[in-house]
């Protein structure tokens, strides 16, 4: 899922400095699962912003609502009634949500309340970690199911680099060396021969460098 976290409260308060009527819109998808932008978090953020503005002597009107997901036009299309009398929409979705809202309600000031961090999963209660770099050309079957593009800070495809020691990465002694993990995993599977082959250079045009990516299903 997409992991996003709320911007610092003070920063959001500054962004709505000039707003008088706000629709604060939560998202029921990834950010609900990672406990940062769902219904509950929207209510808490709205209350905090109302208090800040009241204390500053400039009360603000904030309505809250949470949609199934903000990355699908059908779920944001029918918000006209809520949107029509506000001057600002604050989105608590990942970076997709505020873009869709800004396009659909193009006369409104749309503010992202979140910083979109990464695509990952939960590691333990309250901890999420990046697992996928969205490179567009997955080859983790060759690396024991561990993604070197994301989990190696140098995205080395023929690792490990010379900086790994005691299974830890050179940049941070807390961080496991992805290639050490890959080596151990392939050793366990009896597939270490895989590492003797030189992995070819990556086609980054399938990743961020190709401009906005698009997927079309002709059959739908």
């Amino acid at each position: 899922m997409i992991i996003a976290e709320q911007k610092p409260l003070g920063e959001i308060a500054e962004l709505i400095e000039d707003s008088k009527k706000i629709l604060l819109l939560g998202c029921g998808s990834c950010v609900t699962v990672c406990l940062t932008g769902g219904e509950k978090e929207s209510e808490i953020l709205a209350s905090a912003l109302r208090i800040i503005r009241r204390l500053a002597g400039r009360p603000v009107e904030i309505k809250t609502h949470t949609v199934t997901r903000q990355c699908d036009p059908e779920f944001i299309d029918n918000l006209q009634d809520m949107v029509k009398d506000v001057d600002t929409i604050v989105s608590m979705a990942c970076g997709v949500g505020p873009q869709y809202l800004a396009e659909r309600y193009s006369d409104k000031y749309v503010i992202p309340a979140m910083n979109t961090r990464f695509v990952g999963g939960s590691k333990q209660q309250g901890v999420w970690e990046e697992q996928c770099g969205l490179c567009g050309d997955c080859t983790i079957h060759l690396t024991g199911g561990i993604c070197p593009v994301t989990r190696c800070p140098k995205s080395v495809l023929n690792g490990p680099c010379g900086g790994a020691q005691n299974g830890k990465c050179e940049i941070n002694k807390e961080l496991d060396c992805a290639w050490h993990l890959i080596y151990n995993r392939l050793a366990k599977q009896g597939r270490l021969d895989q590492l003797k082959k030189v992995a070819p250079p990556k086609d980054w045009s399938k990743s961020r460098d190709g401009g906005p990516r698009r997927m079309t299903r002709e059959d739908i």
Binding site: P153, K154, S155, V156, L157, N158, G159, C161, V198, A199, P200, P201, K202, W204
Partner: peptide, 12 residues
Amino acid sequence: NVYDIDSIQLIQ
């Protein structure tokens, strides 16, 4: 950082 290619690919 860039790391478009790695050291072994640079040799190639």
